[in-house]
Every structure is written in structure tokens, then in C-alpha cells.
């Protein structure tokens, strides 16, 4: 496979292995799109089926959700800056911006956990009705993805510190940046179709 190595272009695309991994990850993201679409469809079908539990309009708080959205969108932007530094060959810049990204992600998670705890205190739990089951599963699946992404990025930071930028580490960082942007896109859909609609209707 070494025969396919390129001498120029972005580091992560230079080896055949790197190119295949990135293509493979794009395909994986396509599968993730299907997975989230199914969850969105489930949510849409079960919308309004709150049984005896509170309705979303009573619980959703615009303030928290706006802060969460701001944190995650900003983290996507800082993730982009991190990749920009990687392309320039700056390990330090890359690591700095990646850490900022993770801190923003952790902030998002913190608010999400607070939100979930708050709702369940108000009587809307996973078990209380079909609607709330769908809500927690959809938002929770996104949250679990963010958590896994943070754990994964921490592992990559250690590898970056140990090995610097190679075709392998740059490929890994590039892939996690794709993942992070993807989660951002999913959140935009959750924000609009779950929170905005839930607050308005």
C-alpha cells in the first residue's frame, strides 16, 4: 500500500489507507444519518402522545436550549479552526483549539444533563409516556454521541502529544472533525424540530 503514497496534498489524504478510512467514515456517517432519521421519525410519530405527563411546551426553556445551541455551534467552529492549524502543520495550534472544542462540548453536555434532571423532576421521565420516551431517546442518543466524541478526542490528544502530526494522526483528527461537525448538524435539527416546535405548539 506504500506504493500509493502521495508526496503532496493534505497529510491525511496522502496514503491509500488514509483515503479509504475517510471514505469509509463518510459512508458510516450516511448510516448515522439513517439512524438519526429513524429516531426523528419515531419522535414525529409519537409527538403529542404525552398521556398523563406534562406537555413539552410547559417544560422546554428557551434560555438553556439557546445556550446549548450556542456552545455546540461554537465548538464546531473551533473544531474547524483546529483543522486549519493542522493543515498549516501546527500541532500546538491544533491541540489548543481541539481542547477548546472539547471544553465547549463538555459545557453542552453539562447543560443537557441538567435539563434532563430538571424535566424528570417535573414529572416527565423516560417511562412516563411515549412522547417523553422518544424525546429522551433522540436527545439522549445525540448526547451519547457527544460523550463518545469527547472521550475519543481525548485519546487522540494523547496520541498527538506523543507522535505529532503523521499521516495516521492527521487522518484520525480529520475523521473526528467530520464526526463533530455531523453532531452539530444533527443538533440543529433537534433544536428546530424538537425544541422550537415543542415550544411553539
Amino acid at each position: 500500500m506504500s506504493a500509493h503514497e502521495l508526496k503532496s496534498g493534505p497529510l491525511e489524504y496522502r496514503t491509500q489507507e488514509g483515503r479509504m478510512s475517510i471514505l469509509g467514515f463518510w459512508i458510516f456517517l450516511a448510516a448515522e444519518v439513517v439512524l438519526f432519521s429513524t429516531l426523528f421519525a419515531t419522535y414525529a410519530v409519537l409527538y403529542g402522545r404525552t398521556a398523563d405527563a406534562p406537555v413539552p411546551g410547559e417544560l422546554f426553556e428557551p434560555g438553556i436550549v439557546l445556550v446549548m445551541t450556542f456552545l455546540l455551534l461554537t465548538s464546531s467552529f473551533t473544531c474547524g479552526i483546529a483543522i486549519h492549524h493542522m493543515r498549516r502543520g501546527s500541532v500546538k495550534g491544533l491541540m489548543t483549539w481541539l481542547i477548546i472544542t472539547l471544553i465547549l462540548g463538555l459545557g453542552f453536555l453539562g447543560f443537557e444533563i441538567y435539563e434532563f434532571v430538571h424535566y424528570s423532576h417535573e414529572g416527565a421521565t423516560l417511562q412516563s409516556s411515549a412522547f417523553w420516551s422518544a424525546f429522551y431517546t433522540l436527545a439522549g442518543t445525540h448526547g451519547v454521541h457527544v460523550t463518545l466524541g469527547i472521550g475519543w478526542a481525548v485519546l487522540l490528544l494523547i496520541q498527538l502529544a506523543k507522535r505529532g502530526l503523521t499521516t495516521v494522526t492527521s487522518r484520525k483528527v480529520f475523521i473526528i472533525s467530520l464526526y463533530w461537525h455531523f453532531l452539530d448538524v444533527i443538533w440543529i435539527f433537534i433544536f428546530t424540530s424538537v425544541y422550537l416546535i415543542g415550544m411553539v405548539v
Binding site: L46, A51, L126, Q127, S128, S129, F131, S133
Partner: peptide, 22 residues
């Protein structure tokens, strides 16, 4: 499968006749 697992093990209401599941 995940939704039904959550239904069965953690008591959610996706596919149940209770809790307005479907």
C-alpha cells in the same frame, strides 16, 4: 431493536399499549 430493548428493560413506552405508545 434499541427502542424495544429500552421498552423492555428500562420501562419506556415506545411500543406499549400503556402510556400512549404505538
Amino acid at each position: 431493536l434499541a427502542l424495544l430493548t429500552i421498552d423492555r428493560i428500562f420501562g419506556s413506552q415506545f411500543f406499549t399499549v400503556t402510556g400512549e405508545g404505538m
